[in-house]
Design a protein around this nucleic acid. Structure first.
Lengths: 245, 245
DNA sequence: CCAATAGTGTCTTTCAGACATTATTAT
DNA sequence: ATAATAATGTCTGAAAGACACTATTGG
């Protein structure tokens, strides 16, 4: 029996309700460290615990639109800056016991954002912050959010390999060194500056030159760097593969 | 506001119901061609159209378990043969208008199966068959199932690159030539026999030798082939990359 | 001047792909 | 015998990684 055959002679209100929510694993880079957007729960269950921003999907709202709305509400940001945030579906979490009160199926999303202002806590949240992922309070995370975050971080690391999405963590114009810093931060390992530089410029469509350079050299010396903007490629080939695994 | 804050003071029955279903893009290889499991709808809407097997998620059932149950019901297969089927989450489809009657959010899954018997049509389906993907009736597919199938096929092609899941299309013991046939069938392009052979054996953990060989050579001559079983690797590195993109 | 950084050059190793070769089997 | 196939060998080119080097800037 497929879904529609089932629904044809079926009134959903006769059955236990299933709630559908969207959650967002929003990542950004602040001060050289990977940060995750978390809110602190005000009400039980898990009152006082950290949780992902998210909420109920509205009746006529697409899932991706719902995630974008939740992100906007939680960060207090408008359309312009939010437009540069990459958002994709991460996965759906529907374990029957993931919420103690009722069946909740949550479609988790993954966001890559440039450096954004501090979030403004929503009325129902006790707090909202960008937290370094190295300081995640794994034992104090609500529901199955620790696992969702793990999955999101691994997806983010993998995405940098074969997509140009690392640029979404940066301003519209950036240097190769800034791009390399994104990779080093997300992957958590140092990369060879020279090889990275040559590699990035050799992948078709990854970045394109603006013709301009930075106003000043590095903070501790060095020449001015050329500026680039994201290219037109949506996939990198050859990819930038992590070593080992 | 996150999901639980919302739910705390919320009765789902006050709101328009959202139905949660699972659908399955089940792939197998029959007679050298990639086949997809489809059912023909008996009731409107889309009566007479082809659709993916799927159905309502039961109250205390995990999403993956629901997909496995739907697959079992639709193929009429028991646990033993079904145990060798690979099943993973593909993506969630929740466009508000994807079902004309009500809001239906469907978690699509992707299955890789060895050659299975012909399916037995469920009571609510007019028919159920393994259909070659080259013969897909794209205009006669129900709902957004054409797009789900496209996404599933692309995911399948990509998965063969960096996972050993091609072996899930085969019997527990197989030859390198049979494995190559899987790649050629799913990717839709011929591969170089010699290079493929050397490559497969060089990737650590992809396959391991059983020590045995086939009883007979090829149908039209040739030596007996060595038999292999799946190895322990869950990821292939280096990967078997498709050319171009 | 000195240290740090941007960017380029060179060499080695690895791996994919083209192609050739040998051995074994069905007909 | 002949054709087909399994399996291995050889060569070339692409690309990653290690390392060296030059040029430019801040202090």
């Amino acid at each position: 029996m497929n879904e529609q055959d089932f629904l044809a002679g079926y009134d959903p209100r006769d059955y236990p309700a299933v709630a559908v929510t969207v959650d967002v694993v929003a990542l950004t880079i602040r001060e050289g460290a990977l940060h995750l957007l978390l809110i602190r729960r005000a009400a039980p269950p898990y009152a006082g615990h950290w949780a992902l921003p998210g909420g109920f999907v509205r009746p006529d709202e697409d899932l991706l639109a719902g995630a974008r709305r939740e992100l906007a509400e939680e960060t207090g940001l408008g359309g312009e800056r939010l437009g540069r945030v990459h958002l994709e579906q991460l996965g759906t979490y529907g374990d029957p016991d993931r919420d103690p009160r009722m069946r909740v199926v949550s479609i988790a999303h993954l966001a890559f954002a440039p450096d954004l202002p501090d979030p403004v806590a929503d009325t129902d949240a006790a707090d909202a912050i960008w937290l370094p992922v190295t300081a995640l309070p794994n034992r104090q995370l609500a529901f199955d959010h620790a696992r969702i975050i793990d999955d999101g971080l691994e997806r983010a690391r993998a995405k940098l390999e074969y997509t140009p999405l690392a640029t979404r963590f940066l301003a519209p114009e950036f240097t190769v060194t800034e791009l390399r810093a994104v990779y080093e931060t997300v992957w958590g390992e140092p990369l060879h500056a020279g090889n990275f530089h040559r590699k990035v410029l050799s992948v078709p469509g990854f970045v394109e030159s603006t013709g301009a350079s930075t106003e000043r050299g590095g903070a501790r010396g060095g020449p001015r760097a050329k500026l680039y903007r994201p290219g037109t490629a949506r996939l990198l080939h050859p990819a930038l593969l992590r070593t080992l695994r």
